[in-house]
């Protein structure tokens, strides 16, 4: 998995609640086994936007923005991981949101993308700075220090579970990590075979 330690660059504001994965990656852009993820990202919104008022990620300062700032319940709806792949294809490495859909958040972690929730008060203050800066200066996200540093020097701290942080910092393989518990998995599996002998092979 891709490692994450620091990222520095523009923070693009998409301050809407309940942005769902059908909006992030519409099915119509996903009809191929190897879709163009970059083109798919917010595909409908980008097509519908005008040259005079382009979609936020198409504005010159945000074309390479590594940080996306979102509202509540970001990534809700379909469990499709392509939504994360499309964000990665655009260069997004960190999403700061009021909250995430749980399945979407898990998918960001699997792809070396850092999901941050700052808490209500900090998030509002941070959003204001992002809007005020408007892509004219860089924000820095540091997972080692667990901080976001704004262009004016303001620092916001964020919380992160130890294991999630370690996996991102070191790019650890999730399966290898789990298989450290192989003996416990074997034991549980044996127990379940006794408790639920009716779990049939679907191949029979």
């Amino acid at each position: 998995m891709e490692k994450f330690s620091q990222v520095r660059g523009a923070a693009a504001p998409l301050l809407l609640d309940n942005v769902n994965t059908d909006q992030i990656t519409p099915v119509v852009f996903m009809r191929s086994l190897e879709p163009d993820y970059e083109k798919a990202l917010f595909g409908r919104w980008r097509l519908a936007a005008s040259e005079a008022e382009p979609f936020v990620l198409d504005r010159p300062h945000f074309k390479r923005a590594p940080i996306l700032v979102a509202g509540a319940n970001f990534g809700c709806g379909s469990a499709r991981e392509v939504a994360v792949w499309a964000l990665v294809a655009h260069g997004i490495r960190c999403i700061v949101a009021r909250s995430f859909s749980e399945v979407f958040r898990e998918s960001t972690l699997k792809n070396g993308v850092l999901p941050i929730c700052l808490g209500v008060a900090d998030q509002s203050a941070f959003e204001q700075k992002v809007v005020a800066v408007d892509g004219q200066a860089a924000f820095e996200v540091d997972l080692v220090a667990q901080t976001i540093t704004c262009p004016d020097g303001t620092v916001f701290s964020f919380a992160m579970a130890h294991n999630e942080r370690a996996a991102l910092l070191e790019g650890l393989d999730d399966v290898a990590l789990t298989l450290r518990h192989r003996a416990l998995i074997d034991a549980r599996e044996a127990q379940i075979a006794i408790e639920q002998p009716w779990l049939q092979s679907v191949r029979s």
């Binding site: 469990a79 991981e81 998918s107 999730d174 399966v175």
Partner: peptide, 13 residues
Amino acid sequence: ACGSTELEHVLAT
């Protein structure tokens, strides 16, 4: 529910 990479983990473990 889970994403695709998570499913790889589920199938493997």
